[in-house]
């Protein structure tokens, strides 16, 4: 179901792990939904863990996680993806992992990629 059915009731953020960790509406489930409806291209879509809690909570049956993925795709198509995302994709293509070159028996310098 598309986001035109979303009335911003806010129930989607009840178990949103990012919202609950930050208590910043903008990078929680409802904030992302509002930004998608306004077609704002922003790094904020990359802060979603795609856990689908918002999909489960939505009383209108909207699959917000799918809409967030679509916005990420659009950002890539329009060359507006994050630098971290570009580096991650490059690393996967080159080294088969998101972290980059890893010497055998050693750990990557950073255990995060975006």
């Amino acid at each position: 179901m598309k986001l035109d059915k979303c009335r911003s009731c806010g129930l989607c953020k009840a178990n949103c792990p990012i919202y609950n960790a930050t208590l910043r509406e903008t990078i929680g489930a409802r904030g992302r939904a509002i930004l998608i409806k306004k077609e704002v291209l922003t790094d904020i879509y990359y802060t979603c863990s795609l856990c689908k809690s918002c999909d489960t909570e939505c009383p209108a049956g909207i699959e917000l996680s799918k809409e967030i993925r679509k916005m990420r795709e659009r950002m890539v198509e329009e060359g507006k993806e994050t630098e971290a995302n570009k580096a991650m994709i490059d690393n996967i293509r080159k080294y088969g992992n998101p972290f980059g070159k890893i010497e055998k028996g050693k750990f990557p310098d950073k255990l995060y990629c975006c």
């Binding site: 903008t26 904030g31 509002i34 930004l35 704002v40």
Partner: peptide, 17 residues
């Protein structure tokens, strides 16, 4: 505090429409 465009847009609404 924030004056970011995204924050200002999101906090411009509640559940009233």
């Amino acid at each position: 505090a924030s004056k970011d465009e995204e924050d200002r847009l999101v906090y411009a609404q509640d559940a009233s429409g």
